[in-house]
Write a protein that binds this DNA or RNA. Structure first.
Lengths: 277, 277
DNA sequence: CAGAAAACGTATCAAACATTACGTCGGCGA
DNA sequence: TCGCCGACGTAATGTTTGATACGTTTTCTG
């Protein structure tokens, strides 16, 4: 079976009428971009008429031109998500295969930081470094640990950092403590939790500045967030990897540490002293 | 100077109205495919109206939507021609230098997996996949979130998984429930916590199988553990990065998922059904 | 060489589309 | 508090686009 559309086309190239074959070859020559343009342009570049293009598409088994284009689109999106895996099949890896998972994670991380700019992180760090602002952190089912991790570190560097734990209805009580000066950091990936959305909505209504760390599909909370950073999460597995989000969180921690060097150093000394007793 | 459209967008992200920023972020999140679709679809996926998309495009300096799409098209075509040439944005790390931290983390991860063998992970996975064994997880001050994360995932895949939370003296009560068939997974990095050491010691005395995930300096718990995997943690900062440990944890999760495919699938379905009600 | 069938392009139409004009809401300053 | 300005969405409009019907040309067959 042909795995890519290009393969399907070359396979059936022989039993095509002359005009359609010319069109098909033109498509393959500048694949897949030509297929994403309009029928008229496709036709012109191939030196045939529009109906010939449509007949070709029909011959390939697509109901209409739009369907054909989405197929190309999907293929392209898949290829872009993993830039390393050329058109050649990714090979699901033998069972033992640790490597494919690891490389997917590394690629997620690289890709995430290709998209997220230092400036974006810097702005969030500025927010989190403001000693006058209280910082609240919370996450979803799988991301809440990342919120906790971030809290644990930030709480060392500066005062006024807290994690929203406990039951979801307890969160509402905490909302009373939040005002316009405060920051709410939310971690939320698929499947997005309604409870987090409600929380963000209410916090937003109170004027709280919301920072959202989410996946590439963007949690609906983005609607209320003034800062959004999206990490890649897809790995060859039944679940999503939060590794990129974790590393984003560590970058935020690093940023705040760097921004408040003297303060964090003093606090660390103080805490060490307290612990030693 | 911005070399890619994505960069141009992120740079100018701050001085944009809220709606356009949402659109821009949506575009970045699924770049560049979203920009190649129709205005209406772009608008819907971004949660704004069509005119907002067009205003964004105009703000970016394009005469009309078609011109904007051709620009994306050209960029995409260029990238496809040489898949290796990622949009070169190594970003020579000016002062803000996100890069050195990131590359240190990536190096930690690679180095970790150069040392940790697939066999080691496989053995631990075998332990964690044994349905007759209960699994308890716990971590230190900064690593406990990783323990929680691992718990959240394993608990979906199989029964009998629990995280040791609450105060440290509560842990002792939980020890009663642990026997020779059980597994205790401990995450512990510098500075190693005495409380964890005590817990591990007592658990070991009860015949509990101990799995230790630690840093390259090896927690003293290694003495009691039957399985030890060490991740690199050093980064150019005042604190240590747990990213490698996090990714190790995700590999354990992946391993167990793969080992118990039918069971996890069934449990996931069941849980989804419960949640839907 | 005659006839038919297939291939292809032209002309046309209806749906989808980008684009513009306009009204409304919300925030900011007087 | 009132009035102004920018941001945003709704609705209307003119254009583009994919799709189809039909006539012409080409190709194969007997």
């Amino acid at each position: 079976m042909a795995s890519s559309i290009a393969e399907t086309i070359t396979d059936r190239l022989t039993d095509m009428p002359a005009g359609e074959r010319r069109a098909a070859q033109a498509l393959i020559a500048s694949y897949p971009m030509l297929g994403l343009k309009t029928v008229a342009e496709f036709a012109q570049r191939a030196g045939v008429s529009s109906p010939t293009i449509l007949r070709l598409v029909a011959r390939l088994g697509y109901q209409n031109y739009a369907e054909f284009q989405s197929a190309l689109n999907d293929e392209l999106a898949a290829r872009l998500q993993s830039p390393l895996s050329r058109t050649g099949r990714a090979r699901p890896g033998r069972d033992g295969g640790v490597a494919p998972l690891l490389s997917a994670m590394l690629e997620n991380i690289s890709e995430t930081f290709r998209v997220v700019s230092a400036k974006q992180i810097g702005e969030i760090v500025t927010l989190l470094s403001d000693p006058r602002r209280k910082v609240h952190l919370v996450g979803g089912r799988f991301t809440d640990p990342i919120a906790r991790y971030t809290t644990a570190h930030l709480a060392i560097i500066r005062p006024g950092v807290s994690h929203l734990d406990g039951q979801e209805n307890q969160w509402r009580d905490r909302l009373i403590d939040m005002g316009k000066r405060d920051v709410l950091v939310v971690f939320d990936i698929r499947r997005y939790q309604d409870s987090l959305l409600h929380l963000a909505e209410k916090a937003n209504a109170r004027g709280v500045t919301i920072v959202l760390v989410t996946d590439q599909w963007l949690s609906p909370i983005a609607r209320f967030a003034s800062h959004v950073i999206a990490g890649r999460t897809s790995v060859p597995s039944a679940w999503d990897s939060s590794a990129a989000l974790f590393i984003l969180a560590e970058h935020l921690i690093a940023g705040v540490t760097e921004r408040l060097p003297e303060q964090s150093a003093a606090r660390i000394r103080e805490m060490d002293a307290l612990r030693r007793e």
